[in-house]
């Protein structure tokens, strides 16, 4: 049954009548047209659907929208224009971190989370932080370099 849910999406308060059990992933894609959030597996294994929930990285495929009542949700659409966001995009392009691109928005959310959490992340910290974001194209190395570069504010 539909209920009224209020939460903050990319900095804006929103309110919707919706079934609270609907996955946040589907709400973002279908009801909010935020298609940067991808479904890669639907079981919390791949990280393509990563979003920030109250500043922490989570899998939006495992979250019923009813549980984000009052919380702040951020997707790539809300991050890409920010200072950090631009730096991450730049670093990903510069370091060769992008191939097919399907995991990349999720990686970008991960990168943003890392940049907020660590001032100077080591490559081990980056690898651990991104261990739930799978990529089948790159072998990860260039993604790790990109996050390092973004954290340093430019090319490493």
């Amino acid at each position: 049954m539909k209920k009224k849910i209020d939460f903050v999406l990319n900095g804006e308060k929103i309110s919707m009548e919706i079934d609270p059990l609907k996955r946040l992933l589907d709400v973002l894609r279908e009801d909010c047209s935020l298609t940067s959030v991808k479904e890669g597996c639907g079981e919390g294994e791949c990280g393509a659907c990563s979003v920030l929930l109250d500043g922490e990285i989570v899998n939006s495929c495992l979250i019923p929208v009813g549980t984000v009542e009052g919380a702040a949700v951020e997707t790539v659409e809300g991050i890409r224009e920010s200072e950090n966001g631009k730096r991450i995009i730049d670093a990903f392009a510069e370091e060769g971190a992008v191939q097919c691109g399907f995991c990349t928005p999720g990686m970008m959310v991960g990168a943003e989370w890392i940049l907020r959490k660590y001032e100077n992340p080591t490559s081990d910290e980056i690898r651990t932080a991104l261990s739930g974001n799978l990529c089948r194209c790159t072998g990860y190395d260039m993604i790790i370099s990109a996050v390092e570069a973004a954290a340093k504010g430019g090319r490493k």
Partner: peptide, 21 residues
């Protein structure tokens, strides 16, 4: 000599529309 991939920014920033998007 490497150049920036032409699709890198669009993909990272989530603009690229895959079939389900």
């Amino acid at each position: 000599t490497p150049v920036r991939r032409l699709d890198a920014v669009e993909k990272t920033a989530g603009y690229t529309k895959y079939i389900a998007d």
